[in-house]
Design a protein around this nucleic acid. Structure first.
Lengths: 189, 189
DNA sequence: CTTACCATGTAAGGCGTTACATGATTCA
DNA sequence: TGAATCATGTAACGCCTTACATGGTAAG
C-alpha cells in the first residue's frame, strides 16, 4: 500500500525535461540517474505504452528511413501527475550494499579475504568519483542557465560527497583489518 | 544469472555468529543490518525451512511452555556454503533514493517543495546518525574481544561516515535552493 | 482486560529483471 | 563482413513484500 512503483514517475520526470525515445530514456537513466536509481527496457517500454493509453504522454513516430523510432512527449495531465507525486512525502530511501554484507560476516572468511572486497569497492568508488567530477565540471558553469541543470548538479554533488566519504572509510577499514592480519600488504595489480 | 538471491547468505551469516530463532533474525536485520540490507518474515521463515531441508542449518524446538520457539543452528555444510559465497566477488551494490529522484525532477515542483524533502531527509539522517553513534559507543570498547564485534563496528563506521556526508550535503542543497527561492526561511516545527 | 510484544507461518500478487527475438545502421 | 550500437518490444520467471491468520505472554 505504502509502496507504489516509481517507474512511472522516473519516466514522467525525464520527459518533463524533454521528449525522448525509450532508448534515450534508458541512456539517461544509465548516466544521470545511475547513482541513485535504475531501470531496464523490460519496464521502460511497457510503462511508456501504458502511460500513452492513460493520456500522460503522447507518442510520435520519428523513424528515419527503415529505423523505427518513437519519441514520447509529456502531456499536461502527465505533468500534473508528476507534480502531484512530487508534493507527496518520500516513502523510502534504501541501500542494498552487498559489500557491507560481506564485511559484516567477514569474520567467517578472515581479514585477507575481506580486504579484497574493500579494495574492489574502493577502486569502483574512485572510478565513479572521477565520472561524477566530470559531470560536475560540465554542470557547474551552466547551473544558472536552467533549473534542470541546477537540480541535476545537486544530485551529482550528493554522489561526490558520499563517494568521498566511502573512500575515507575504505582507508580506515583497511588499516583496521591489516592490524588483524599484519602480513597483508597493499595489493597492486 | 549474475544476480543470485542473497537472503540465504544473510541468514547463514547471522547464524554463523550464533543460533537464532526466525523472530530474532528479523530483529537482528532490523537493527544491525538495517543501514544496508532488509528482509521480511515472508522471506525469512520459508528460507529457514528450505535451508534445514538442504542441511545448511538444523532446527531445535526451544519452546517455553505453550510459546512455540524454534532455534536454528548453522551446520558445517552451511558454514562452507557461506565461506564459499564470501570468497566470490561482490555482484552489486545499489541505492534507490527516492529523495534524489524528487530532487532531480525538482524543477517541476519548485524550490520550496524540494527543500521540504531535503529537510525531511536531513531530519531522518540526524536521527539515524544518533543511533549509529550509540552503536559505536557500545562496540568500540569491545572491538578486540571478538572478531564479529570489529566487523560489526566497521559497518557502523560506514553508516556514520555516509550520514555525516549526507548532512553536509543537505546544508549545501538548502543554501543553493534558497537562492532560487529567497523568501524561504528555515522551517521549524 | 487490553495493548504491546513474542512467535511462526502462508498466500497472493506486484514488480521488474533477464533472456530472447528482431532488425537497421555505422564503422573498422 | 562482422562487430558495435541504435532501436523496440515480449515472455518467463524469480524474488520478496504485504496482508492475513493464529495464538502465547507480560505489563499496566
Amino acid at each position: 500500500m505504502a509502496n507504489t512503483k516509481k517507474i512511472d514517475f522516473v519516466l514522467l520526470g525525464l520527459l518533463s525535461h524533454e521528449s525522448y525515445t525509450g532508448y534515450e530514456i534508458k541512456m539517461q537513466i544509465d548516466s544521470a540517474l545511475k547513482y541513485f536509481w535504475g531501470a531496464s527496457y523490460g519496464s521502460i517500454y511497457p510503462t511508456l505504452n501504458q502511460m500513452e493509453q492513460d493520456g500522460y504522454v503522447t507518442k510520435e513516430n520519428v523513424s528515419t528511413n527503415q529505423r523505427e523510432k518513437i519519441a514520447y512527449t509529456i502531456t499536461e495531465s502527465g505533468r500534473e501527475r508528476l507534480r502531484e507525486w512530487l508534493t507527496l512525502p518520500v516513502e523510502k530511501d534504501e541501500i542494498r550494499y552487498e559489500t557491507l554484507l560481506k564485511l559484516f560476516f567477514g569474520s567467517e572468511a578472515g581479514a585477507e579475504e575481506t580486504i579484497r572486497h574493500i579494495e574492489a569497492f574502493e577502486k569502483k568508488t574512485e572510478q565513479q568519483l572521477m565520472e561524477l567530477r566530470g559531470f560536475e565540471a560540465v554542470l557547474k558553469p551552466i547551473k544558472d542557465t536552467s533549473k534542470t541543470h541546477l537540480y541535476y548538479l545537486l544530485t551529482v554533488e550528493f554522489g561526490i560527497e558520499t563517494h568521498e566519504a566511502y573512500l575515507k572509510w575504505c582507508k580506515e577499514v583497511k588499516k583496521e583489518l591489516k592490524k588483524e592480519n599484519p602480513l597483508q600488504q597493499d595489493s597492486h595489480l
